[in-house]
Simulated scan of single mutants.
Amino acid sequence: MKLGFIGTGNMAGAIMGGIIKNKIFRPEEIIGADISPAGRERAKETYGICVTDNNREAAEKSEVLILSVKPQYYADAIAEIRDCISDDQLIITIAPGKTLAWLEEQFGKAVKIVRTMPNTPALVGEGMTAACVNQYVAEEEKEYALKILSSFGKVEIVAEHLIDAVVAVSGSSPAYVFMFIEAMADAAVAEGMPRPQAYQFAAQAVYGSAKMVLETGKHPGELKDMVCSPAGTTIEAVRVLEEKGFRSAVIEAMKACADVSRNM
């Protein structure tokens, strides 16, 4: 096996799907370990990978190992596999709050670690992932990790002290965006639009607006001003959002999110 997963949940599945679709690895080159029989069977049926209930088996058979369990299970998972991790294996982590220093301490030896923070849009190939590496990862190994991570969206190297900001701005933010879409759809329904159509209009508006930011390179404020005609409908909506503390609510929510990440 070339690639292993400990944990085969939604994020692991998104990564597997991107990797297989982009032919980074073949399904038979991937092994996933999960204590849940249902989780193992789902991964096997969906992606055609090899599965096991033994974390050590996944670790021993992998050149690159992705730890995709919840943060609270990281210490136990690492304790189970650390004595079978070799010097040339690459470990990729996706847990908020688990720093490179903490991870190295858990392994208790020199281990090549790539710490990452992906997000759930990876499920549709539009993820945004931040990555940082420890001192044992060579340049070519870092590039190899980035190739894997870019198979399900975009990836950027960031300084480790920015990971908590990444959690707030991309890791957790799909939830805020989904709430925004839901709220806009609710308002459209209140105006008489059928709900399925309301979701379609709201989601496409968010998608298209995000694409404009990414592709035009214009400042979001400039793009907002382009929509706001004098004495028009949009500027009135913007006025109400400002009156209700829209920007402040988003900023405070993200600060709270980063604080929780920082203290996990």
Rank of each mutant, 00 (worst) to 15 (best):
M1T: 11
F5C: 05
G7I: 01
T8D: 02
A14C: 07
M16A: 08
P27R: 06
E29A: 04
I30R: 03
I30V: 07
A33Y: 08
I35F: 12
S36V: 10
P37K: 08
G39T: 06
R40K: 06
E41Y: 06
A43F: 04
Y47N: 09
G48Y: 10
N54T: 08
N54E: 03
N55Q: 05
R56P: 02
E60R: 13
K61T: 13
V64N: 01
L65S: 02
S68W: 00
V69W: 01
S86R: 15
D87P: 06
Q89E: 00
Q89F: 08
L90R: 05
P96M: 14
K98G: 03
T99G: 09
A101R: 13
W102Q: 14
L103Q: 04
E104H: 10
G108N: 08
G108S: 02
V114E: 07
R115V: 06
P121F: 00
P121T: 06
T129K: 08
T129Y: 09
A130Y: 10
V133W: 11
N134A: 02
Y136I: 02
A138Y: 13
E139N: 14
E141S: 11
K142F: 15
L146W: 10
L146G: 04
V155F: 00
H161W: 15
H161G: 15
A165I: 06
A168P: 04
A168T: 04
A168F: 10
S170W: 03
S170I: 09
G171L: 03
S172K: 08
S172A: 14
S173Y: 06
S173P: 03
F178H: 01
A183Q: 05
M184I: 02
M193N: 05
P194K: 00
R195I: 05
Q197W: 09
A202G: 02
V206D: 00
S209I: 00
K211C: 12
M212I: 03
L214I: 07
H219P: 02
P220V: 03
G221H: 05
E222M: 00
C228K: 01
A231I: 08
G232F: 12
T234Q: 04
I235Q: 00
R239H: 11
E242M: 06
E243W: 11
A249H: 07
C257D: 06
A258T: 00
V260D: 07
V260R: 15
S261R: 07
N263E: 13
